[in-house]
Amino acid sequence: MNYSSSAQFTLAARVLHWLMAAMILTMLFIGVGMVASVSERHDWLIRIHKPLGIAILILAVVRLAVRLRHPPPPLPVDLPPLQKVAALASHWLLYALMFAMPLIGWAMLSAGGYPVMLSESLRLPPIFPVSPVAFAVLRHAHAWLAVLLFLTFLAHMSAALYHGLIRRDGVLSSMTGIRLR
């Protein structure tokens, strides 16, 4: 047993991480799937997309609070500086996108003059004035940031597997709670 492989994220952080990982990945697939479909899938995927997005936004707030209260375990001391920078930057990018994506989606529907319906009757207030120009900009931003989020997710997943399978330095197990050798 050594420090770096036993240091773990708190249980709250781990639960939030895996729950949100599943939600965000689902959300990315729902997003690209619904805009590429003319079938009934288009309608029911949108009905999931909106409340799921708001759920992610709420969990992101909780998660940021947990993170600020319980700083994550440190990265291994022998991690090359470039990888350390990449690790920190990608984590903050993931946090930024977790907030930005739902907020942009919400603002985009507001700018398009749509009622922001989370269910048959649950409606959120608009957070942006009606404007076709703003709608177009926000709608494109939503799509491009989704691609950025997907790429960041891929980098994050690859790095996690690199730590778990190749470096075997305890970084992956600090989030899984499982020792992989």
């Binding site: 047993m1 050594n2 420090y3 770096s4 990265l75 291994p76 330095d169 050798r181």
Partner: peptide, 30 residues
């Protein structure tokens, strides 16, 4: 974050086919 000293019980470095195999697993998942 305070940096942690390199653990003494570090796993052995992977080499050759084992290393390539594990990179291939990561590549396949992506």
């Amino acid at each position: 974050d305070p940096l942690v000293p390199t653990p003494s019980g570090k796993p052995a470095r992977l080499t050759g086919p084992a290393l390539i195999g594990r990179f291939a697993v990561i590549g396949a998942v992506v």
